[in-house]
Design a binder for these strands. Structure first.
Length: 389
RNA sequence: GGUGGGAUACCCAAGCGGCCAACGGGGGCAGACUGUAAAUCUGCUGGCUUAUGCCUACACUGGUUCGAAUCCAGUUCCCACCA
């Protein structure tokens, strides 16, 4: 498949290099607003803003593409406003690629009262309880109006502990809705990605992946992860779906993950990630480093003159001490959140840059090993303390 | 000098005879956060070989009472008003 917007004989996704020792891939995804080097991390800007960061900062830290959300933006500020502004890109002054989520996740994650119908879901607004309806047709129309570069199909995303019957129904609906989405008009140059559901069930994942890929989307996402499942289950879900995704299309793990998870998922053949962790965790006072996370608002940073990470080149680490940032967080100065958000997002993007560099150099295996040896998830730290004591 | 009010854990502050190691804030400490209803949420915050246990604690000293942070007397300090 070629990209009509560029009028070039260029495929949407090019595989540049593959890792001989794993399923990791170095690639290039061409969108209407630019070429994205993969593996890529996409900062999440649900409400037309990557919380606490502005486009200039996103650019500086090497952001290639950001997310926006169908559901949130359609109820606030509303499509008329965004269309009048000349589309989502102009509205938020981000001229790079934007991927919009379809709203499927929101409908199933935050609407308590919902009725699943043949062509979508009736639910209530989280803001005022007013009745809303979102289905394939609506979701695609909104994404078309937003003018995103990559639109996601409207899927059903059940919680990880949903009964088997519900998982099966979700897969069936997700497939049917994907077909409907496929038929909807797009904005010029807009790519559409299909989504694979199926929970932790191998057969369902395969069935869903086969059906979705048969529809020939521009790329494929694995959904139904980061929905409360334990990490091994999440990894299995990815492993169940991945073999049935075509090598010539980008693969996107929705809502993932921690830095260590991303490294592991790249090794399992995933090309794209998005996650609220770097920005949310930053706002809650915790920094990501290659050794794991640490609470910068904790007392240990009280008089620490070193930056969050001495080896980090982000704006926050180049200029500010932990003591200063901790102080800002302590006295509730908005700059504190911004600096940690800058650092965390930079860190995520930097890890992906390193992954790409190592894939290009053929040393991804070493990088993976080394990264995981240094990166300590909090739980493991606590666990080891317990077993040692 | 007189009259009135007050002194409670790191800070502010509630309690005014037993259900008080003491409400609630703040601060501190720890944890959580994964397609963002999150600058949020949850614990802990006198000490102890972590216990339906003991010890030390509501300015100080003494008293009343089966029992006092709570009542009484005196002392010290603070505040207000009057001289």
């Amino acid at each position: 498949m070629t990209n009509a917007v560029f009028g070039l004989d260029r495929p949407v996704f090019e595989l540049v290099q593959t890792d001989p020792a794993s399923k990791a891939r170095l690639g290039r995804l061409t969108t209407a607003r630019g070429v994205i080097d993969t593996p890529v991390f996409m900062p999440v800007g649900t409400q037309a803003s990557v919380k606490a960061l502005d486009p200039r900062e996103l650019r500086e830290m090497g952001t290639q593409i950001i997310l926006g959300n169908t559901y949130h933006l359609s109820i606030r500020p509303g499509l008329e406003i965004i269309e009048a502004a000349g589309g989502l890109h102009r509205f938020m002054a981000w001229d790079g690629p934007i991927l919009t989520d379809s709203g499927g996740f929101q409908v199933f994650s935050l609407a308590k009262i919902r009725r699943v119908k043949a062509h979508g879901v009736e639910f209530r607004s989280h803001l005022d309880g007013s009745p809303l309806f979102l289905g394939p047709k609506e979701a695609m129309a909104i994404q078309r109006a937003l003018g995103s570069d990559i639109a996601m199909v409207f899927d059903e995303c059940p919680p990880h502990d949903a009964p088997a019957k519900e998982q099966r129904l979700a897969v069936e609906r997700t497939i049917r809705w994907a077909r409907e989405c496929r038929e909807q008009p797009r904005s010029p140059g807009q790519l559409v990605f299909g989504i694979v559901q199926g929970g932790a069930n191998a057969a369902l994942r395969e069935e869903c992946a086969r059906a979705i890929t048969a529809l020939d989307f521009d790329g494929y996402a694995i959904g139904g992860v980061s929905v409360g499942e334990p990490e091994p289950e999440m990894l299995r879900a990815i492993e169940f779906a991945e073999p049935f995704l075509p090598a010539g299309k980008a693969r996107y793990a929705m809502g993932l993950g921690t830095p260590a998870q991303m490294v592991e998922l790249v090794a399992r053949g995933v090309d794209m990630f998005d996650c609220v962790l770097p920005t949310r965790v930053a706002r809650n006072g915790t920094a990501f480093t290659r050794r794991g996370t640490f609470a910068i608002k904790g007392g240990a940073c009280k008089a620490e003159v070193r930056p969050i990470d001495e080896s980090c080149g982000c704006f926050a680490c180049r200029h500010f001490s932990r003591a200063y940032i901790r102080h800002l967080l302590n006295v509730n100065e908005i700059l504190g959140l911004r600096l940690v958000s800058i650092h965390n997002s930079h860190f995520y993007l930097h890890v992906m840059r390193e992954i790409r560099a190592h894939l290009a150099a053929g040393t991804f295996g070493d990088y993976r090993r080394e990264f995981l040896a240094h990166y300590v998830p909090t739980r493991r730290v606590l666990a080891s303390r317990h077993t040692e004591g």
